[in-house]
Design a protein around this nucleic acid. Structure first.
Lengths: 69, 69
DNA sequence: AAGATGTGTAAAGATATCTTTACGTATCAG
DNA sequence: CTGATACGTAAAGATATCTTTACACATCTT
């Protein structure tokens, strides 16, 4: 059970650096890096900002992994 | 800047109690209550579970309020 | 080689999210 | 009135999210 994301993939595709993303989204570079490395999930607020930032559907960025029985 | 939600409205429309929601989503009733009262935002994981649970687009539940310049 | 740029990481601290326990109020059924 | 059900809330504590500061490594340019 948990959430994984495809932020790094999307960021690279768009040719954006972690540094620029952090500035644009008003968080630190370490936050972007940690989320890309799936160290933890973004807050809902940051997740929604990421959706707006990349302009892609949320399902293309964040995947809710179901509990495998 | 922040996120508001329409969980209470949607829950009432579907005739579900906070207690049942909490059981179904495996969180406490207090968590549901606090989120409905906008005491704090759900985690991204819980937010995605809520989307699945209600089967509505995320934009109908969560609204990212922009910073008014 | 030296400097600039982009990325990975770590540790300490602040704040947010969530649980557990518990109490209060209101409504409805018996 | 009594009991059951649903909701609102509060306080203490655990864990997650995010910041600040700092260091390391790799690549590219000069």
């Amino acid at each position: 059970m948990g959430v994984i994301n495809h932020i790094k993939k999307i960021r690279i595709e768009k040719g954006i650096t972690q540094i620029r993303m952090a500035e644009d989204l008003q968080v630190t570079r370490q936050t972007i890096n940690a989320i890309e490395k799936n160290k933890y999930n973004p807050s809902l607020e940051l997740a929604l900002k990421l959706v707006d930032y990349f302009d892609v559907p949320i399902e293309e960025i964040f995947i809710l992994e179901e509990d495998e029985t």
